[in-house]
Design a protein around this nucleic acid. Structure first.
Length: 262
DNA sequence: ACGCTTCCCTGGAGGC
DNA sequence: TGCCTCCAGGGAAGCG
């Protein structure tokens, strides 16, 4: 699930719950989610310290500790955070559990274990090493820079949007929405988009991501004209009433309205 | 550079 | 009920 808007909502949740509290224990329940760090090192880097702030880049969340290090969290397809007091209200697939001095817990939950957690010294270095492109909502990503990124690329519009090393944060779901709002077919070649269409794509990207964050990534609160609540073959296009179609692009399920997206 | 496949994991849905 | 296959919003790696 977690794409840029989801992770931004996680970040705000993290800030409301986990900042400025001493971590009194760290329980690694499944080391599959540890990314190049031993359980021992994760525990020693967290226990006794506290989180002071957080930042996000693409789909990655970084929590700064008062020892000048950062806890990196990536959520894969099924990850999320949950803050709770009593274990009977815990989530079901906790992989890492932090306990704070106030008696509350923060769970890193990841049913499919496709997420990753580690400690790092520098977000900048991490982004370099992992070849992370500019964050899709970074104010520095203006239209002219967006046009430059497109000009360097070939291939399908959806592939472009989902390439984390070019622009980071957009996944399968939101790329479909951005293309729907832009009225661009997911398989349209990016090098054949008109200047006008590129501008439309850029504006849709910012609008869709900001709207999703604003609505707390709850599809039932999304604007009427969004395709996300209609990701189902046989459902109707919220714009023209035509049938929603499902195709595969890069082996990922892709929903579109063939009448609106040429 | 791009596209395609496979793999990493778990679990729900649907067919038989 | 059990068994099987397919599918899912993450990404990396290998190959042509």
């Amino acid at each position: 699930m977690p794409e840029l808007p989801d992770v931004e909502v996680f970040r705000e949740y993290f800030n409301r719950t986990a900042l400025h509290r001493k971590i009194v224990s760290v329980d690694v329940k499944d080391d599959k989610v540890l990314d190049g760090i031993s359980e021992k090192k994760l525990v020693s880097g967290l226990k006794g310290y506290q989180f002071e702030s957080s930042t996000r880049r693409g789909k990655y969340l970084f929590a700064m500790l008062n020892n000048d290090r950062w806890m990196m969290m990536h959520f894969g397809m099924t990850g999320f955070l949950k803050y709770f007091k009593n274990m009977d209200s815990a989530s079901q697939h906790i992989r890492i559990l932090l306990k704070f001095s106030n008696g509350y817990n923060l769970a890193y939950d990841s049913q499919r274990k496709l997420g990753k957690v580690r400690l790092i010294d520098s977000v900048y270095d991490f982004a370099e090493e992992n070849d992370l492109g500019v964050d899709a909502l970074d104010p520095e990503l203006d239209l002219s820079r967006f046009k430059k990124l497109i000009a360097e690329r070939r291939g399908k519009a959806k592939t472009f949007l989902m390439n984390q090393s070019v622009i980071s944060g957009i996944g399968n779901i939101y790329s479909d929405e951005i293309l729907f709002q832009s009225r661009i077919h997911p398989e349209h070649q990016v090098d054949r988009l008109s200047s006008k269409k590129i501008k439309k794509l850029y504006n849709s990207m910012k609008m869709v991501l900001n709207t999703a964050i604003d609505r707390r990534v709850q599809p039932d609160r999304f604007p009427k004209g969004f395709i996300i609540p209609h990701r189902d073959e046989g459902d109707k296009c919220p714009r023209c009433g035509g049938n929603i179609k499902k195709i595969k692009v890069n082996n990922r399920g892709t929903y579109l309205c063939p009448r609106c997206q040429k």
